[in-house]
Design a protein around this nucleic acid. Structure first.
Lengths: 113, 113
DNA sequence: CAGAATCCCGTGGGATACTG
DNA sequence: CAGTATCCCACGGGATTCTG
């Protein structure tokens, strides 16, 4: 089970989930990691505009929520791989209908991701 | 099609949808209106903690995005009914899996909404 | 390479008062 | 009843610099 940052304040499942994905880049991080595991620098390049600070804090929160796994290899230079946990994969699947809705109804069916 | 507030800036359908539901009370408003059409004051009571200003602005944005319909009856005292458009209903349906995920994985299966 | 530490700022949202 | 109109503030997030 994930770690709620506002424990006990949720009135339903949706806003509980919104808390996990609430953050400017979080759904994009989830989407990227769903394609393949990524290193920190790779994620930066995949998300043009994100700052290091925000990317790092988002990753830490997603990790605390149990949807992202962080694997650090003891090397020089440092090597860290981020990937989705099974819970993260299921979150992505739960997000799919919303993505389809947005693509269809906001983007007008333009083929993007 | 809905009105994107950040036209042309979306990299995928999910963050386009996130823009529509991004707002502290929006998913709760959608959930409430999905039960039944509501008047302004009813919504206030259904969402303990929301301020009039924020509720009003959220409703205006949801209306601009085409997911909420506002029906004003010309009476004294004023009478306004908010309801979901067909697009709003479909958005709610797209939100359902996310709600189930949150209920299951964040709330721990506690029966709420 | 992968971040931690600072500094800074816009704005989303809260509280309160007022109105047609 | 159904909102506006102000005022105010916390905090999420951006830019930059520094480090193991």
């Amino acid at each position: 089970m994930t770690t709620a940052r506002r424990p006990g304040t949720y009135v339903c499942g949706i806003d509980a989930a919104m808390d996990v994905i609430g953050g400017k880049w979080k759904v994009l991080i989830l989407w990227a990691l769903n394609q393949r595991p990524c290193r920190f620098g790779e994620l930066r390049r995949l998300l043009p505009g994100v700052s290091e600070k925000v990317l790092a804090s988002h990753l830490r929160e997603l990790e605390a929520d149990g949807v992202v796994h962080r694997e650090a290899y003891d090397e020089v230079p440092p090597h860290v791989e981020y990937s989705l946990t099974p819970l993260g994969v299921s979150l992505n699947e739960a997000l799919a209908p919303l993505g389809a809705w947005g693509r269809e109804n906001v983007l007008g069916g333009v083929p993007t991701h």
